[in-house]
Design a binder for these strands. Structure first.
Lengths: 147, 147
DNA sequence: AGCTAGGGTTCGGAATCCGAACCCAAGGGG
DNA sequence: CCCCTTGGGTTCGGATTCCGAACCCTAGCT
């Protein structure tokens, strides 16, 4: 595996990485997947400053990952909900969690469990070949720089 | 899906998120998986300032994700290589890339392709139930807060 | 009329980031 | 033997970003 240099603007790892590798963004998404939708709830759940929260929610809306939607409580309020694009980040969060479970688990164990709603099974994340379905590690993959 | 508050220090998503959600860290790991090993090569490939690079490499070594190892070129040099813990982050990067391919792909297409070394197939990332093997989305998963 | 709650905006100081310059050890060339 | 180059860093000051605290605005409630 030789040293490869790729154009960042064209790399489909670095583009999302620039977005998600911003402080708070991953935590915000975790909260969103846990069901948090309102400004105040994000703020109290994550202990983030209000100004930074405003900004992060804004960029996620701009990016089309969250959608800001008015709804009626006792009066008009707003909620931030995952779009399809946002929901599609689930594998990223699950991969992160699986790694966290294995390598950074606190002695007391994780703070929540996830199970398949219909059969109760645990959740796995797998990297596999689209053709032969073999499970793959980094060593099984060949990188071909284009252009 | 109700609003759930969890302790960050116990959440196995937020622990890795705090680490990877630091500027440059994800890009550094991408480079590492592309085969970059030497300080100078990281620096020229990523256009990161030397001081920040030193610091990031340092925390990744501390965290046991990279290992700093001397080797003989014409004289003693050092290289940074992924440990087992680091290699195990591959699904995270692949999930990120798959999402990037779908949602942020530049018009010209991605800058490199990945294929299964032995059969040439494409690379997929799947979230699946450990019991029944069904492929899962966020909606199929139940969250159970513990403690 | 005044109080409260949700959802923000606006500061100024504190922590990070960054580029450029500097340091150091070991070959190599003259 | 002296100077130059290369890899791998460290140091420094200025430019950004982050953050907490304080403030703002709108509707409903009492």
């Amino acid at each position: 595996m030789a040293h490869v240099k790729v154009a960042d603007e064209l790399c489909t790892v670095s583009l999302p990485a620039a977005l998600l590798g911003e402080r708070w963004t991953l935590l915000l998404l975790r909260q969103a997947f846990l069901g948090t939708r309102r400004f105040e709830d994000f703020q109290s759940a994550m202990d983030i400053s209000r100004s930074v929260l405003t900004e992060r929610l804004g960029t996620l809306v701009e990016e089309g990952i969250l959608r800001r939607e008015a709804y009626k409580d006792v009066r008009t309020r707003y909620e931030y909900r995952l779009t399809e694009k946002g929901l599609d980040l689930y594998p990223v969060l699950m991969a992160l969690r699986k790694w966290g479970d294995r390598w950074m688990a606190p002695a007391e164990g994780p703070s929540f469990d996830l199970h398949h709603r219909s059969c109760g099974g645990g959740i796995g994340v797998h990297v596999a070949c689209d053709e032969c379905s073999a499970e793959l590690t980094a060593r099984d993959v060949r990188v071909t720089p284009l252009r």
